[in-house]
Design a protein around this nucleic acid. Sequence first.
DNA 1: CCAAAAGTGTTGGGGATACACCCATGA
DNA 2: TCATGGGTGTATCCCCAACACTTTTGG
Lengths: 228, 228
Amino acid sequence: MKKDRKIPEFKKYKYSVAAVDLAAFTIIENELNVLVVKMKYDPFKGERALPGGRIRTYESIDECARREFYEKTRIKNIYLEQLYSFGDVKRDPSMRIISVAYLVLVNNGGIDLKTTEKYEEICWIPVSKVPKLAYDHSKILKYALLRLKSKLTYTNIVYNLLPQKFKLSEMRKIYEIILGRELDKRNFRKKIFSLDLIKEVGKEAGVPHRPSKLYSFKVKKPMVVEIF
Amino acid sequence: MKKDRKIPEFKKYKYSVAAVDLAAFTIIENELNVLVVKMKYDPFKGERALPGGRIRTYESIDECARREFYEKTRIKNIYLEQLYSFGDVKRDPSMRIISVAYLVLVNNGGIDLKTTEKYEEICWIPVSKVPKLAYDHSKILKYALLRLKSKLTYTNIVYNLLPQKFKLSEMRKIYEIILGRELDKRNFRKKIFSLDLIKEVGKEAGVPHRPSKLYSFKVKKPMVVEIF
DNA sequence: CCAAAAGTGTTGGGGATACACCCATGA
DNA sequence: TCATGGGTGTATCCCCAACACTTTTGG
């Protein structure tokens, strides 16, 4: 009986608020990093979470995700993809929020991030070192990582994590980091070239070993390509 | 200038309402059918649309989808999977609605459907004969069909479209209908058996030709299986 | 000449595809 | 015996995975 009383407490909210949460990734020093914030206010004050915010009535969900990310990082030119909507009744203890999760990929995550009025801190941290997150954000992060792995294997989205010009070994390294396993150098090369995705655009210089050729993507549009 | 005035009109809504829309499929007479309703009220009065409804504050999104489907069809035991959230500002001309689209699969769609107070009519219609739908529902339907095709090829979800006991030819027929191409009888058989998904449970009787063996799925849980 | 990373070919096996004929039953 | 759909085997091809040595540069 007592248990039953718990559910109706959410009925006091007439509306379910819609929001977005961002699982944003970048590669820093051969590690996959995710953007996390430290909450400034209750509930979850002091805990880590994914950045996010409410959807305004005059913007689409994609626009909201892009705006939120820009406001928090001042980074433009990102890749953005809707993941999944999370709406458990009690995912936010303070009110009923339905959150649309987004995958964000950035190729220059190293640049400085300023904190905002909403969060105590905002920073990139290696995925391997992420603590338990507030709300259901650990679940969202897990989901985002799954999608990222999956998309790497059958699309060209890796271009969003690479600089304009890059070495093939850098590209392979990103695959190895995210998939969590080593890839054969020769087979990787064969596969990528067979897909006709990249073109040679120069040559590395000033390295104490055989210089690498530099490549660039022919097209930077999401495509299905079946890499593995 | 005039154009700019159009956007702020949506600001008059303080909240974005969250809802679900259902793309529900079943096989009827060797055709893929989708559940559509005829709208009773403006806007879109008289037009066809996918069924759907608002998310209540005390139910999760999945629960809402399940409830909506049950209320409209009185069918239980369905397969349900979240697809994507649609939230263009003007997708509903009357107010700002963010809608979480669901894929629903039913294996006994032929049973009678009663209309409800909200809709003028609710019925299954062949996907090949669906007219342009209200709201952005044509877009949702297209997305759902893509996902359905895709999921057929790498999971066992086909069991949601088959009766308890079925012939292998019925199973193959469903693949052919949804994928839109013929499949080699021998190769299909080899592939399905190699995946160890189904078991023999009997034999057809009373047909004027060699009776078919009947099969049943060993497990009815979603699994990744790479069928094609 | 040494260290360091880049670049390069071949082979074997497994899974996918293509393809045609016999079988079991009811009428 | 005939019409109908059910059931079966083989040969080929291509893609993937495994694997080790040579090349180019700066110091």
